[in-house]
């Protein structure tokens, strides 16, 4: 190194001894000493104070976020349960309403049926009555028809023959003709 000092001219006159400063062994001792002190101090301060503090902050945040996510999950499942129960209640109410409506319809239909039957029964009775009356009238008329026929037949025979026939004979002849 000593031989180089004089020869590396342009470089040399910068330093006090003309040695390239990073290779100047005279400064190594104090540099190493202060580096050791500074590095150890930095290591201790970081490892004991600063990094645990940062780690704690990050840990708290992570815990908080996890808590919040768990909370959100719980709320979500709660709301889902609420929706489910609401839908169940809705379905129940709907079924109830449908059952009610069906029962009502049944009742109404039964009442209508009954009234219809009553009405029909009344009508049938009136019809029977009317038929009976017609029958009675008809038979009465028929009875009158026989008398008239007998009278008429007697009168016709008297007119034709000139002599009134026996009432019994005419009645026999009319009955034979009628039946």
């Amino acid at each position: 190194m000593a031989t180089a000092t004089g020869q590396t001219g342009t470089v040399a006159h910068g330093g006090p001894k003309g040695v390239f400063p990073p290779f100047n062994k005279d400064t190594f001792g104090s540099q190493l000493l202060w580096l050791a002190i500074a590095f150890a101090a930095l290591y201790l301060l970081l490892a004991r104070v600063a990094l645990p503090r940062l780690a704690a902050i990050l840990e708290v945040r992570r815990g908080r976020i996890d808590d919040d996510i768990a909370q959100a999950g719980k709320l979500k499942s709660e709301s889902e349960a609420a929706i489910e129960s609401y839908q169940k209640a809705l379905a129940e109410a709907r079924a109830k309403a449908q059952a009610l409506a069906a029962a009502m319809r049944q009742e109404l239909m039964a009442a209508a049926e009954q009234r219809k039957k009553q009405l029909e029964g009344g009508l049938a009775a009136k019809l029977a009555e009317a038929e009976r009356k017609i029958e009675a009238t008809k038979s009465a008329a028929m009875a009158h028809v026989r008398g008239i026929a007998v009278d008429t037949a007697g009168a016709i025979v008297e007119e034709l023959v000139g002599k009134a026939p026996g009432k019994a004979a005419v009645e026999r002849a009319v009955d034979a003709a009628l039946h």
Binding site: S30, L33, A38, L46, A50, R53
Partner: peptide, 25 residues
């Protein structure tokens, strides 16, 4: 036989230590 001196290099080392620790704190 080794000279021990507080140099500009040492000053910057401690400056870095102060900046890092102080900044983080």
């Amino acid at each position: 036989g080794v000279e021990i001196a507080f140099t500009n290099s040492a000053a910057f080392m401690f400056g870095a230590v102060a900046l890092i620790v102080g900044g983080l704190m």
